[in-house]
Amino acid sequence: MSDLLGVAVLGAGHMGADHVRRIGGRVGGARVVAVADPDTARAEAAVAGREGVSVHREALAALSAPGVDAVLVASPEAAHEEALLAACARGLPVLCEKPLTPDAVSALRVVEAEARLGRRLLQVGFMRRYDTEYAALKTLLDSGRLGRPLLLHCRHRNVSSPPHFTSSMLISSSVSHEIDATRWLLGQEITAVTVMRPTPSEQAPRGLLDPQLVLFETDRGAVVDVEVFVNCGFGYEVRCEAVCERGSARLGDPHAVVVHEAGHVREDVAQDYLTRFADAYDREVRAWVDGARRGRVTGPSAWDGYAAAAVAEAGVAALRDGARTVVEMAERPALYG
């Protein structure tokens, strides 16, 4: 490997293009050497002004391009499994944007493929673990100062949802972050999911069940509620409060400049996740690059991706059936012990 980690970026959409800008810019130690996207014009635009980057229509062609040492997957989720299995076969470390794959069955196939290798190559992009506020909350909960966590109150709001968004995607796409945050912050597994459906907002597209209230139960008796509202209209908000035996702690309160002017008070609200979690994405990719250069992958694992998929599937079933749904999970391979 050269001094710089050569990265193939799969997918040149909103997320992929942002990662291309990040690598070699705000994150050192790596450079983009290949980009793949079925829309090659979009891929060309993402790497405009960068020298020595090959553009490909097919993901597997990018993996085989000269100088590729690692892979960043930011393509649509349906394309993840093929790319992940191919990267494993080549021994390439991977940072894969969530979800790992579209469902628990395919996610488990990826887990089993990596387990057969006997070493970790895959990291899933649950970037909240790299957010300074989430990290501080994790440290506080792990210290035991506040006693045992009893409840988590979570809020996840978006300005508007993409045209293709479905009611189930509020859970499988949006709430997947709260699934991972719950498992990570509490160190507990989610065992059951219930979904409550208020009357949909008039701002939601016709047929979209938005907002939703998602309830998790854990294997150590904690209860988590997640308000997910993807057409709130005013901004992007992520908040979390941990209620413990001897106190509580909250993250996500606004920290922007507050302007008092002409009889009004104004405070800016982030409009998307790339703004709210810009620093977390930088930290995540920087840690992945540093680890990959040393032959180590230490972030959220393929097993974490599988667990999120299994919980999300239970959540979608709970949404559909209107009943509390038990989470079914495979046995954890020793690699992730």
Rank of each mutant, 00 (worst) to 15 (best):
A70F: 09
V71W: 01
H164S: 15
L100C: 04
T199F: 10
V226N: 10
V73Q: 04
L63N: 00
D210P: 00
A318Y: 05
P205F: 05
S54M: 09
V110M: 05
G49T: 10
S172G: 12
D39S: 09
R296Y: 09
T101E: 03
V175M: 15
D39T: 09
L60A: 13
R250A: 11
A135T: 15
E51T: 14
V71K: 02
R324F: 14
A192G: 11
A242H: 01
V327T: 03
V110L: 05
A12P: 08
D18H: 13
L209C: 11
T101F: 05
V269A: 14
G263P: 02
A292C: 07
H19E: 14
V265T: 15
L140E: 14
G315Y: 14
V269S: 13
D219E: 13
L251P: 01
Y306P: 07
I190M: 02
R206G: 13
A249W: 01
V47M: 04
E202Y: 12
H156I: 01
Q123W: 07
P38V: 10
A270H: 14
P198T: 10
R128L: 14
L151Q: 14
V214F: 03
R197W: 03
E202I: 12
M196Y: 09
A318T: 06
V33T: 07
G52V: 09
Q212G: 00
V124R: 00
R57K: 12
D290T: 05
D282M: 02
A314Q: 06
S172I: 11
A78D: 09
T101V: 11
I23V: 13
L186N: 01
V111C: 04
M127A: 10
R294F: 10
R283I: 08
L117P: 07
D219A: 12
S301A: 11
H153P: 00
S301I: 08
G291C: 11
L274H: 10
S2N: 09
A70G: 06
C88S: 08
V326Q: 15
D304I: 00
H164F: 15
R155F: 05
M15P: 04
G295N: 07
A87L: 06
A256F: 11
A204E: 03
G207M: 11
E261V: 15
L84E: 03
Y130K: 04
D18R: 10
